[in-house]
Design a binder for these strands. Structure first.
Length: 543
DNA sequence: TAGAGCGAG
DNA sequence: AACACTCGCTCTA
């Protein structure tokens, strides 16, 4: 619709192969659902406009723009798929002026004031959310929904209750009751088809069932930590952090088709995939150290989701940097292709007939960057008894996908109710059970030690960063060098370049703001109260 | 660590 | 549960 505004008022579906993967709200009013077959969709709505969506590039692009815009708010942003993000705005809430919740408030007639002041903070977060959504509209012309809560679980779920282009806030005290309304355990993020089946087999169908069940029942079937996690999720308790997203850990493509049974066609497919993937890789700019081939066989006794993979390492020397960008010369390309075929031979015995319906290719294990799991960058972030999490999603899609595809029940969160002009509140249905649930409402956990309180001063941070780059490819520093302006002299370029681009931007912009004359790194004025930028942790600790 | 499985969009 | 296409996390051998 953004690309072609004429489509805004028309029923529009995005087509991949013979499936409608998503659609706009006009189409939904005809009963079009995600994952619906094109033929079925056209039966429901003969005027349905279909646009091919197999090329994900435009979506990646928009997704990146959204992510970048969110990062300008100087808070941890975690990408969830291509059209959703969590943002932990705890650090902004403290300085937020004003008053009152913007948008919908869940359960608004029954607010018990909490000692910790969480309602105030969350209402501040709702105003921040409003500004963020306005910025997304102004800058990128995209409408969004937001859910505002003290943890990711509730933020995500509550954000789906008023759509499209609306936002909803929920207070911690309402979390348990809100969850108890959900008809299927599968509505809980993290519980998918398999876990839901297992739970159902234990007699646990609704979230209420899960809330009320004995933990030992779960312990019989799940490991102790999974059992506990499921139980806690059902009650609205979730202390997982908003993990700052960096570049992807793997970069892959796959293609499905009717059937391939001869080697030459396999090779053709893989050549095509490699060509496309190399474009993505050059775009990404990092050197991979591994490659993976994926295939799916026809008529497996296993479900169609079943895939087999083979992996091997690749020499980084196959990839070179020219003028700051990654290139793969023809000879390297041929070597890659022969490795890919070898992996394929590991998967398929050519002396026997084979029938393949999907082939995939992925680069993995990119050369060491400073960030990532267990890296020091993670310790730079605030920890989280997070008081204010926003879940933002673009309006072209809806979450709670599980329900659309499950075909089980007509849930209260169905697409139908969302397309009504005035969404009817669902709480009426449940007033009967709320009182006895209220007592088990979790109270927000007390603040944990913020990792910022580790006394990591500037010198420590710099020396830490400077220790590592031994195994780093020196080429990699050149890759970013063209953008090289406004970085203080005493910064190790190699280390700086190895940081994810988001952090680089973050650092650059703070240098620009704080030291317009480009003075020394350690002279940056302290601006501790504001923002959540990594720069703060490079600054000598006043205490 | 490789590979499969699950879950997310 | 399949259909399509990607990515991350976790478990097991």
């Amino acid at each position: 619709m953004i690309k072609n505004p004429e489509l805004v008022e028309k029923p529009l579906g995005i087509q991949q192969k013979n499936i409608i993967v998503t659609c706009n709200y006009v189409a939904r009013s005809f009963g079009i659902k995600k994952c619906m077959l094109v033929v079925d969709g056209l039966k429901l709505c003969p005027g349905l406009v279909l646009v091919k969506g197999e090329d994900l590039q435009p979506y990646r692009h928009m997704s990146k723009n959204i992510f970048s815009l969110l990062q300008t708010f100087k808070c941890p942003v975690e990408k969830l798929g291509m059209d959703e993000n969590f943002i932990d705005v705890t650090s902004l809430v403290k300085n937020e002026g004003g008053d009152g919740v913007v948008g919908h408030l869940f359960d608004e007639y029954d607010v018990n004031e909490c000692d910790c002041g969480c309602e105030k903070r969350l209402s501040a977060a709702s105003r921040i959310a409003q500004r963020i959504r306005q910025a997304l509209k102004d800058e990128l012309n995209i409408t969004t929904c937001a859910g505002i809560a003290h943890n990711k679980l509730l933020a995500k779920l509550i954000g789906s209750t008023h759509k499209p282009n609306q936002q909803t806030t929920i207070y911690p005290a309402s979390g348990c009751y809100f969850l108890s309304q959900l008809d299927s355990v599968q509505s809980i993020p993290g519980i998918g088809v398999k876990t839901a089946e297992t739970l159902n087999s234990l007699g646990l169908v609704t979230v209420l069932d899960l809330q009320n069940c004995d933990i030992n029942l779960l312990n019989n079937t799940f490991s102790a930590d999974v059992a506990l996690k499921l139980k806690r999720l059902s009650l609205g308790i979730d202390n997982s952090e908003v993990k700052m997203s960096s570049k992807p850990l793997s970069l892959g493509l796959e293609d499905s088709f009717k059937i391939i049974s001869v080697e030459s066609e396999v090779k053709e497919k893989l050549e095509t995939l490699l060509t496309r993937l190399l474009v993505l890789l050059e775009n990404d700019g990092r050197k991979p150290t591994g490659i993976k081939v994926t295939l799916r066989r026809q008529m497996q006794p296993k479900p169609v989701t079943h895939r087999e993979t083979r992996h091997c390492s690749v020499s980084p020397s196959l990839f070179q940097f020219k003028d700051g960008s990654l290139v793969v010369v023809e000879s390297s390309r041929r070597k890659l292709m022969s490795m890919i075929m070898k992996l394929f031979y590991k998967l398929v015995d050519l002396s026997k007939p084979f029938h393949i319906t999907l082939l995939g290719l992925a680069f993995t294990k990119f050369q060491e960057m400073i960030t990532g799991k267990g890296s020091i960058a993670n310790y730079f972030m605030n920890d989280l008894s997070v008081q204010s999490i926003l879940n933002l999603q673009s309006d072209t899609d809806s979450s709670v996908t599980s329900m659309d595809c499950s075909g089980l029940t007509d849930t209260t969160l169905s697409e139908k109710s969302e397309s009504e002009t005035e969404p009817s509140p669902k709480k009426v249905r449940f007033t009967g059970i709320r009182r006895h649930l209220r007592q088990s409402s979790p109270s927000p956990s007390p603040s944990k030690l913020r990792v910022a309180d580790l006394h990591l001063n500037a010198c420590d941070a710099v020396s830490l960063l400077r220790l590592s780059p031994k195994e780093m490819d020196s080429d990699s520093s050149k890759s970013v060098s063209p953008e090289w302006s406004g970085v203080p002299n005493d910064i190790d370029l190699e280390v700086f370049n190895a940081l994810p681009s988001s952090l680089q931007q973050d650092l650059r912009s703070s240098w620009k703001r704080n030291v317009p004359n480009g003075s020394s790194f350690c002279d940056i004025p302290v601006n501790n109260d504001k923002g959540n930028t990594i720069t703060r942790y490079f600054i000598p600790n006043k205490r």
